[in-house]
Design a protein around this nucleic acid. Structure first.
Length: 504
RNA sequence: GGGCGCGUAGCUCAAUGGUAGAGCAGUGGCCUUUUAAGCCAUUGGUUGCAGGUUCGAGCCCUGCCGCGCUCACCA
């Protein structure tokens, strides 16, 4: 397939040809810079008041605006540090050079320009260009029409808005929307601060297999692939849990991993087929201690990246200051749904109570799955301020320690804020006999073709039989945390290349 | 997967079923301190794709493709 060039592209291709005919390489390998644009501005402002001092600079960047006015031309170029105005004048470089610039430079081209910094009559620190050359010619016009600078802020007019194009052509989105670049800088800062925090707490960062012969650690459908030489199916991990806990058996007391999980499930505003997870496991801690560490960690991130413990998310102010609310799951459901799950020990009984409230329980669901649906439908959307919901039903928590005083519930919590689930944590089950029984229970409760069923992991049981210290574990969706801190309503805004259906 | 909505020039958007348009970008001019520069002129379209209804379809109908919102499943 050959590309059909648009009329605008054809004109620029012609310019490329003409440059080559003049012996000018439109894509040279060498470039130089003495200052970033902001460094050059700062350097000039530093010496501006001093007599006879000049700032010479060689700047590089992308041409973002062009104002040709006969014998002079103004333009803005943008580099990683920001924008700076450049000024070409026939008096300085001759009329032919100005004409050359006007003829061959388009919006989006990369340029290198050298000269002295000065301040224009209207007060903008600007590079008076002595020399310039093309660093890379842009063929396809960037989809930005016009920018305006108001009080140092770039205001964009009629900029790329179509979400489909923004996600499919993220490069154009980033090139044109500086606020999008800002989101991904913040994302990196969030991940860096999570690492800082955990490293500071004595956790060891590890990497465990993404291709797993047996998937586990969560209830989700996996992606399946095949290894040719081993002649076996492998699954892309749906969680890191079972591998990280094997490391506790290996006497690593505190361990974490930040990486990608893959779940073959629906795609929507808060779900991407691959997403970034943080899991940590902490020997000699239980879920109550993990709760406290969770608060500390999120507040640490807030201090580092937001500079405030109050953040604004989609018009809501969220106060991250510990301690967060703690709500026992059964109390929460009693209050918000009016059903006391402790009075309904079986799925049948609970389903009946739901029907009495005009709810439609899913027919084959277990008691735990019914409770889970009540959480998702009634609690989650209402939990705007940070809240720990704790003590979950046993049958949807097959890796979690039961509560000593009530074997039907387990020591597990999830944290919610802004109507979103942020993390999931528990006192990890370390009794190999109980664990084996749970795997068998799962086998009974789920149909044999239900891919969400936890497969029996014999090696994991063997590890546990060697002895696993009591420990608290934690998992958090990093993308969702990033959504909170960047005030974005869609997970695709915080993933550089989100999955869309393939086109053509 | 279901429901609702959207898809028009490079970008942002118009267009009662009746000649597909504007601003910006582009092209050609004028212009030596502009900054959404200005002024004059001007190019640019298989209206997502394929059918149908109609004298006539961007608009109405059907199917398909893609995206968004939403419900279901999930983190």
């Amino acid at each position: 397939m050959t590309k059909e060039y648009s009329n605008l592209e054809k004109i620029r291709l012609e310019k490329v040809e003409q440059l080559r005919e003049q012996g000018i390489d439109p894509y040279p390998a060498q470039s130089e810079r003495s200052h970033t644009s902001q460094e050059a501005i700062a350097a000039f402002e530093g010496v501006e008041s001093k007599e006879g001092e000049e700032v010479s600079a060689t700047l590089v960047g992308r041409v973002r605006s062009l104002r040709a006015m006969g014998k002079i031309t103004f333009a803005h170029i943008e580099d990683g540090s920001g924008r700076v105005q450049i000024f070409l004048r026939a008096n300085d470089i001759g009329g032919e050079q100005v004409e050359f610039f006007n003829k061959y430079f388009d919006l989006g081209d990369f340029i290198q320009a050298s000269g002295e910094m000065f301040r224009t009559r209207t007060g903008e620190v600007t590079l008076r260009v002595k020399e310039f050359h093309m660093l890379a010619k842009s063929i396809t016009p960037l989809p930005a029409a016009k920018d305006e600078v108001v009080d140092g802020e770039v205001v964009q007019h009629a900029t790329l808005a179509e979400p489909e194009v923004r996600y499919r052509q993220r490069y154009a989105d980033l090139a044109v929307n500086s606020d999008v670049r800002q989101i991904f800088r913040k994302r990196a800062a969030i991940i860096r601060s999570l690492r800082d925090f955990l490293d500071g707490q004595g956790f060891l960062e590890v990497e465990t297999p993404i291709l797993q012969p047996i998937y586990g650690g969560a209830a989700a459908r996996p992606f399946v692939t095949y290894h040719n030489q081993l002649k076996q199916d492998l699954y892309l991990r749906i969680s890191f849990e079972l591998y990280l806990k094997r490391l506790l058996v290996g006497d690593i007391e505190r361990v974490y991993e930040i990486g990608r999980d893959f779940r073959n499930e629906g795609v929507d505003r808060t779900h991407n087929p691959e997403f970034t997870m943080l899991e940590f496991y902490m020997a000699y801690a239980d879920y109550q201690q993990v709760m406290e560490l969770t608060e500390e960690m999120v507040v640490y991130v807030a201090d580092q990246v937001a500079g405030s413990r109050e953040i604004s998310y989609q018009g809501q102010v969220i106060n991250l200051e510990p301690p967060w609310s703690r709500m026992k799951l059964s109390d929460g459901l009693a209050e918000l749904v009016g059903i006391d799950i402790e009075e309904h020990a079986t799925a049948e009984s609970l389903a009946q109570a739901m029907r009495a409230k005009d709810l439609e329980p899913e027919p084959e669901a277990t008691r735990g799955k019914l409770i889970d649906s009540l959480i998702g439908n009634f609690l989650e959307p209402n939990l705007l301020q940070p809240t720990f919901l704790y003590d979950y039903p046993r049958d949807i928590s097959p890796l979690t320690k039961s509560r000593p005083e009530d074997a039907s519930t387990v020591e597990r919590f999830e944290a919610f804020m802004a109507g979103m689930e942020i993390c999931n944590a528990f006192s990890e089950l370390n009794d190999p006999l109980d664990q084996e029984a749970r795997f068998q229970e799962m086998g009974r409760d789920y149909a044999s073709d239900d891919e969400e069923r936890h497969p029996m992991d014999e090696d994991y049981l063997r590890a546990m039989r060697y002895g696993m210290p009591p420990n608290g574990g934690f998992g958090m969706g990093v993308d969702r945390l990033t959504m909170l801190f960047t005030d974005t309503p869609n997970i695709r805004e915080v993933i550089l290349f989100p999955h869309l259906r393939e086109r053509e």
